[in-house]
């Protein structure tokens, strides 16, 4: 029974990641885009999908995976997320430089660009904290990383939902909902606020 439940959980997570990517891969829009633009778009979709796995790994919410192993994968996928963001922004820059310069300088006419840029800087900040984690007080590390991650999730979800692009509308919203649910569950499970309360006592 436990094995069945674990199998179901892993299967559901795999489906939640693979299905939206598969639907996007069949989008008619792709035939009118060159390889660089398509790669940039899929790096963004992959980044969104990683946001589902990251909280599940950080809080050991996936059955059958030891906490240490989950954390190690979390670190690698975190580096992968940073790489995905760099490919996403870099590919869009090659495709249409003025649009990306507008976005990065916060002058874009499209609100979703601003949310994407917020999420990008928050992800870089969360990753930087992870690099110097051992030198940080536990309280700063946990609150800092969590705060930036919440910004990443909020920014990315608004960014993705506002975009008319290759992703299917239903699978995109479903994946975004799962990302939010997983993040809330991980913060609750890890009791991130506990470090604040302890200090206040």
């Amino acid at each position: 029974m436990t094995k069945l439940r674990a199998g179901l959980a892993w299967g559901a997570v795999a489906l939640a990641v693979v299905l939206p990517i598969g639907i996007a891969a069949n989008s008619p829009l792709l035939q009118w885009r060159d390889a660089v633009y398509v790669t940039a778009g899929f790096a963004g979709i992959l980044g969104l999908a990683l946001l589902l796995l990251q909280p599940l790994l950080a809080a050991a919410l996936l059955p059958g995976l030891a906490t240490g192993a989950g954390r190690r994968i979390h670190r690698w996928l975190g580096a992968g997320l940073v790489a995905a963001i760099v490919v996403h922004v870099g590919g869009l820059w090659l495709t249409s430089p003025p649009d990306v310069i507008d976005a990065l300088t916060l002058r874009s006419p499209t609100p979703f660009s601003l949310w994407g840029v917020i999420a990008m800087w928050a992800a870089f900040a969360a990753a930087t904290l992870a690099l110097v984690r051992k030198r940080l007080p536990l309280r700063i590390w946990r609150l800092g990383h969590t705060t930036f991650v919440v910004l990443v999730v909020a920014g990315t979800v608004v960014h993705a939902v506002l975009i008319v692009g290759a992703m299917g509308t239903v699978s995109k919203i479903a994946l975004c909902a799962l990302v939010i649910a997983a993040t809330v569950a991980a913060v609750a499970r890890r009791r991130v606020w506990a470090v604040v309360k302890r200090r206040g006592d």
Binding site: Y37, L92, S96, D99, T110, F112, S113, G165
Partner: peptide, 8 residues
């Protein structure tokens, strides 16, 4: 015209 950079 097809959607690009988030909007058609």
């Amino acid at each position: 015209i097809v959607p690009a950079f988030g909007q058609p």
